[in-house]
């Protein structure tokens, strides 16, 4: 498994995966840099707690970046294997198909986790730069950086599944577009839709529920996808 993952990391060399891993969180924070750069005074008037308000502004984009990032990563990874039909070589190796699938999932989960760490650092950095009056809300900062990640695991599992079994990568990308539209409409879509979860909204106002749901349903969708992947013929 470890060696399988080393191989997977080797394969994504020079393909822009690392670039995107950095770009995601940078982009999310950069949007707020522009936002605060243009109308800081106005934004500071919007709430009592400027730090929290700033975090909420960041969090408006985190789910969108996550959902789109997942769609891009999974489809990108599938294209690398599809390009010369490397699946047939991979599956003819003495490793189980489950290992192949698990390794891909784990690698992407790692990249996204790194993105989340970076998101926290960049958020903190720019927040400090803005020098709000309040103390840094550490707990909230960690929550807003990592909760969406865990809540997005079902989306990762679903997109990985679709991307690996689709011949036409237009399908997973279109699914990703659906996903981002749902994520953007989080306030009006029902609680059961997995794309709502990274927004941390739910009717009980308890973000932890989304995290737990994300972990649980993420595992479930992962297993379903993996079983379907192992069942299929490799062409």
């Amino acid at each position: 498994m470890i060696s399988m993952m080393q191989t997977d990391f080797l394969k994504i060399k020079r393909k822009g995966f690392w670039f995107l891993t950095f770009l995601g969180p940078i982009g999310v924070v950069a949007l707020q840099m522009v936002n605060y750069g243009v109308r800081k005074e106005y934004l500071l008037q919007q709430s009592e707690n400027d730090w929290l308000y700033y975090l909420q502004n960041i969090t408006a984009f985190t789910p969108l970046a996550l959902v789109l990032g997942i769609a891009i990563f999974t489809s990108f990874m599938a294209s690398i294997e599809n390009e010369t039909n490397a699946w047939k070589q991979l599956i003819a190796l003495p490793v189980s198909k489950m290992t192949v699938y698990l390794s891909k999932f784990t690698m992407l989960a790692c990249l996204l986790f790194i993105s989340s760490i970076l998101l926290m650092l960049f958020t903190l950095g720019f927040g400090v730069f803005l020098s709000f009056d309040e103390a840094i809300p550490w707990l909230e900062l960690v929550k807003y950086s990592f909760y969406p990640y865990f809540a997005a695991l079902p989306v990762l599992a679903l997109q990985l599944w679709i991307a690996t079994v689709s011949k036409n990568q237009g399908i997973p990308i279109t699914t990703g577009i659906f996903g981002v539209i749902f994520a953007y409409s989080a306030h009006i879509i029902p609680d059961w839709m997995i794309w709502k979860w990274p927004s941390l909204m739910n009717q009980w106002d308890e973000p932890l529920i989304n995290v737990l749901l994300g972990l649980g349903v993420g595992c479930l969708l992962y297993v379903v996808g993996m079983l379907d992947f192992t069942r299929r013929d490799v062409l």
Binding site: G16, L20, A71, F73, S75, F76, S79, I80, I173
Partner: peptide, 12 residues
């Protein structure tokens, strides 16, 4: 060649 790369540009 891939769908993902132009899509990434588009998303950005």
């Amino acid at each position: 060649k891939s769908f993902a790369a132009p899509f990434a540009v588009n998303v950005i």
